[in-house]
Structures are given as C-alpha cells and as structure tokens.
Design a protein around this nucleic acid. Structure first.
Lengths: 99, 99
DNA sequence: TCAACATGTGAATATATACTCATGTGTTAA
DNA sequence: TTAACACATGAGTATATATTCACATGTTGA
C-alpha cells in the first residue's frame, strides 16, 4: 500500500539514517572509508579534525551499524560493510556532482 | 580516481543533501509526496504539524530543488520531480524496513 | 474593493548537535 | 609493571535547527 504516509516512528528511523550523513565531517569519514578500511588517526588526518571528534562520529556510525570496527593491536580499523549503505551514500555523492 | 577523500566543499554539499531528509517531519512530507502531489494544508494534516512549519520545511526542500511548487488558485501543490531523489529517499525507507 | 482563505516568512525560543578538553580504557614493548 | 601510544568517552560550550507566533503576501468571489 503506497497511499499511506510513513508513521512517525518509521519516519524518525529514516530521518535518523539520513542524519548520519548530514554532517560534513561524517561525509568525509564515509568517503575515506569507501576507499577501504582505515584507522582512527588516519581518518583524523585525512578529514582534518581531532582524533576525539573522529571517535565521537565513529561511535554514532557504529551504533547505527553503518561502519564496523576491527582492533589490530593498539589501532582500530573502521570499514563499511553494508552494500546498501554504500550504494545509498554513493548516490548522494553522484547527485551533487550532477548539477 | 576513488583513492581521494571528498574535499570539504563537496562533502558539505553531500551533507546538505542528506540533511534535507534528516528530520522526521520532512521525511513524512516526502513520503506523502511519494504518493503524488499535495497542497500545503493537506500535508500539514497528514503530518500533524502546523501549516507554518510545513511551509518552512517546504521552503528548504524547494531551495534544494527536491520538490517543485505549482500554484492552483489559492492553493500551492508540491510534488517530487527528480527520479534520482525519489530513488535515494526510497532506498532510505527500504533500509530501515530491513533490520 | 473587501472579506475570506491559503500560503509564506521573520523573529523568538527551545532543543539538538559538533567540537574541545580532560581523562579513562586497552594494548604493547621494555 | 610501567611507560608510551591509540582510541573512547563524559562534560561543557557554542552553534544549528525545528517549531510557534504574529503577521505579510497572494488569490478568489461577492
């Protein structure tokens, strides 16, 4: 049935998903991870924000299962796993590159 | 070249796009428009927020060209036009309906 | 022209959010 | 076990954002 509006609860979930990509730093983090897994300090260098800020962002992305963490010694490597999420994010990039 | 991170300017644009869908009310507005064009007061009723709030949201969506407005007498009908945006939004909905 | 209606918008406010700073936790090598 | 390093996290703060309220603008019919 496509004639009913999304209920508030579902809409809130959808909004939450898109909100994950609604910040410049997180978009840069995601775009870095598109290229392959990276650890926190590398991400901080690439994006140009503090390690703390990166960790805060990654926590949110992790809780939403948009990224996964893998510890290797002292470092923690983050990567993208969900192909649907990757597609969704790439579509966003493509759209802004069009007009 | 997929090995470079998105520059800050592009990332800000991508973030801006996703931010458009990062609010529960806007998601409900968009979901209502998936079903076809609707005027402002109908949208306000469907979403359950004030006409003013709907207008404010629609202004943002309009400025980003995510919706288009068509006046018919005293009423203004809004609709979705960009098929890529529709696909992007629907993918967001599908994702939250999976897990 | 005037009244009624639909929509748009600026200002004010309350809440959410991103960042910094300080410190905590986990890991390794000496 | 201790020092050094990588990362996580809570608190505080500054900014962004959604909503409401009051009113402006635009349209139609009398």
């Amino acid at each position: 049935m496509s004639s009913k509006i999304l209920d508030e609860h579902s809409a809130a979930h959808v909004a939450e998903l898109f909100r994950a990509f609604s910040d410049t730093s997180r978009v840069q983090i995601m775009s870095a991870l598109l290229d392959g897994e990276k650890n926190v300090s590398v991400l901080a260098d690439l994006v140009g924000i503090s390690q703390s800020a990166v960790s805060h962002h990654l926590r949110g992305l992790r809780q939403m299962k948009l990224v996964v963490a893998r510890r290797e010694g002292k470092e923690v490597y983050y990567s993208l796993v969900d192909p649907h999420i990757i597609t969704l994010f790439q579509q966003g990039i493509r759209h802004i590159q069009e007009d």
